[in-house]
Design a protein around this nucleic acid. Structure first.
Lengths: 142, 142
DNA sequence: GTGGTTGCAAATACTTTGCACCGAC
DNA sequence: GTCGGTGCAAAGTATTTGCAACCAC
């Protein structure tokens, strides 16, 4: 993998919150930067294994947990039993998942603006719609 | 446990699809009937243990899987690592889950009507919004 | 040097599966 | 009687945790 330069935001936030910036975390961030936005711990592990064979999966889980707690990443369940992670600096998006063929289509967040407003108005609830998974049938499988 | 009479729909669908109606499945259906609509396998197990100590949790998982495959129940992930089940004959509903205090508020499905229409119009996607979990902050924790 | 971090192994938690026996039909 | 269902034990899968060595600061 070529040395992609991850955005500095994550790195700065990590340092300024008293955490260390380690080579392991750098590599994990690079994978998240270069990914499609729904990356599981295991996927990161296999992407990284060739150039960093010792990087243990528990280190990845701990890094992802830290990113989540620092508000740098979102955790989503796409329905296949593994949690997926997505860096906020890559922008928000959502998923339409076909229950029949398994296809995952990304869509941007604007479509949820009216729903968000309605939830606030009717339920006084501030929805955190940053990485939502919606199940159903795609055009071909409808 | 007294012989509560579960709705006949589930029972009929089970029988007519070639499955057997067993005492175990009857008890499991009764628990789902009498529940709040977000019941995990383990919850069913402990509800049932006193009057049916031999009913094994794997039987519950298999029954829930059957109900799901027959379209009688919906599976939802409320974010706590266990899957929850809800009988369709009890009507559809959705959940607002506070990320801070953990409170789960139910809401009915009408609020999603506009979103559903927009997804169909803009993405040709037929959303199956029967048991959705939305995360965010409730009024008190906002 | 100190305190956060890592690698490893073991433990957790939830769910699934193989199989012999059982029971609904 | 047949074929699906059950109980049990074991396996599977994703994730977490305890701990000693390690290294970023």
């Amino acid at each position: 993998m070529r040395p992609v330069q991850p955005g500095k935001l994550a790195e700065n936030t990590i340092r300024s919150s008293g955490h260390h910036m380690t080579p392991q975390r750098l590599v994990i961030l690079e994978v998240l930067e270069g990914s499609n936005g729904h990356t599981s711990a295991e996927e990161i592990h296999s992407h990284v294994r060739s150039r960093y064979p010792k990087l243990h999966i528990s280190t990845i889980y701990r890094a992802l947990d830290m990113l989540k707690r620092l508000g740098l990443a979102t955790e989503t369940d796409l329905g296949d039993g593994k949690l997926r992670y997505h860096l906020h600096e890559k922008g928000y998006h959502h998923h339409l998942i076909c229950e029949k063929c398994g296809r995952v289509e990304d869509m941007d967040e604007s479509i949820f603006t009216p729903l968000k407003a309605a939830l606030r108005r009717k339920h006084h609830f501030h929805a955190d719609l940053r990485h939502l998974a919606i199940f159903g049938r795609c055009q071909g499988c409808a």
